[in-house]
């Protein structure tokens, strides 16, 4: 394309609205976030002063922070593993031709598009200790003797949150894999067949290697998103019982709002960002590689 001044002016004009919104709503807040993390500020009065690294030192000595970090890792890993297993399984099932496939795909994808608030309401109703159908069913088939209070006991609460997280987010894995499965050339399978590969061998030698690139990207993306997930965990248990299912985003929210420690909340958010930066850089690298291809 031409390199005329009038031309690059149009280019700059076109990017300006997006850049402005980005600077105002992302870059500047991010910068401010770091500033706040070095101060003690009351969330209500917004009055405060510079305290240096005090917030960070405070966090590092705080038992609750470490417990929350561990919780976050358990939630992220547990839910991620289930999402990938369910995702791969359903992608393969839904890739086959069978009667009503389009409808089946829609049904499976739907939880992902549903508001987390709705998903949580439905599951809390299913998990309800007195009238929930889950307890009723489990008692009925004799797996448990009496109804369980799923969301107010450990480790049941964490298990429940992980299960609901897996249910809500595994369709993302399915969509990504289905898109990729469609692009695997049929000739590969035909060639393998001629070479005498069984169905199982074809899965291991063709399908899985072909999926590995997308799978890597999906795992990175989902671990980033699960790590920062607030809505689902907070709405399921509020972080309880006690701080049994409290994850880092919930801690940020609690410090900043109910407890009014804006500075400390910001410091936790910054620490969170630092942890995630590793994954984000990995993802950026992976997607740059994808771009080259």
């Amino acid at each position: 394309m031409r390199l005329k001044t009038s031309d690059s002016l149009i280019g700059v004009a076109f990017i300006t609205p997006a850049a402005t919104l980005f600077l105002l709503l992302v870059a500047y807040p991010l910068f401010q976030s770091i500033l706040i993390s070095f101060s003690a500020i009351n969330t209500m009065t917004l009055k405060g002063h510079y305290v240096g690294l005090a917030n960070y030192l405070d966090i590092l000595q705080d038992q609750e922070f470490w417990r929350t970090l561990v919780n976050t890792l358990i939630w992220t890993a547990g839910s991620l593993v289930l999402q990938v297993l369910l995702g791969v399984g359903f992608a393969l099932l839904l890739h086959r031709a069978f009667p009503g496939r389009a409808l089946a795909r829609s049904l499976v994808l739907f939880p992902y598009l549903l508001s987390t608030a709705v998903a949580v309401l439905v599951w809390r109703w299913l998990f309800n200790d007195l009238y929930g159908i889950l307890n009723y069913g489990l008692v009925h088939i004799g797996l448990i003797e009496r109804p369980i209070a799923w969301l107010s006991r450990m480790p049941e609460a964490m298990i429940s949150v992980i299960l609901v997280g897996a249910w809500k987010f595994f369709p993302f894995v399915v969509i990504a894999l289905l898109a990729r499965l469609q692009t695997i050339p049929l000739q590969l399978y035909e060639a393998a067949r001629i070479d005498g590969a069984s169905a199982v061998a074809r899965f291991w030698d063709i399908t899985l290697p072909q999926l590995s690139g997308v799978l890597a990207v999906v795992v990175l993306l989902r671990s980033i998103w699960d790590f920062k997930e607030f809505d689902l965990v907070y709405l399921m248990t509020g972080g309880g019982p006690g701080i049994g299912t409290q994850t880092l985003p919930i801690l940020v929210y609690r410090e900043a709002f109910p407890q009014l420690h804006l500075g400390k909340g910001a410091a936790i958010a910054v620490v969170m960002l630092l942890v995630m930066l590793v994954f984000m850089l990995l993802y950026l690298r992976q997607s740059a590689r994808g771009d080259e291809r």
Binding site: K228, V252, A256, A269, L273, M276, L284
Partner: peptide, 21 residues
């Protein structure tokens, strides 16, 4: 690159400064 970075940014990191703005 910034676009992609922002896409991955946790909402909770921006929550507090956005509130102030």
């Amino acid at each position: 690159q910034m676009v992609l970075f922002t896409y991955l940014l946790p909402a909770v990191v921006l929550l507090l400064p956005l509130y102030l703005i």
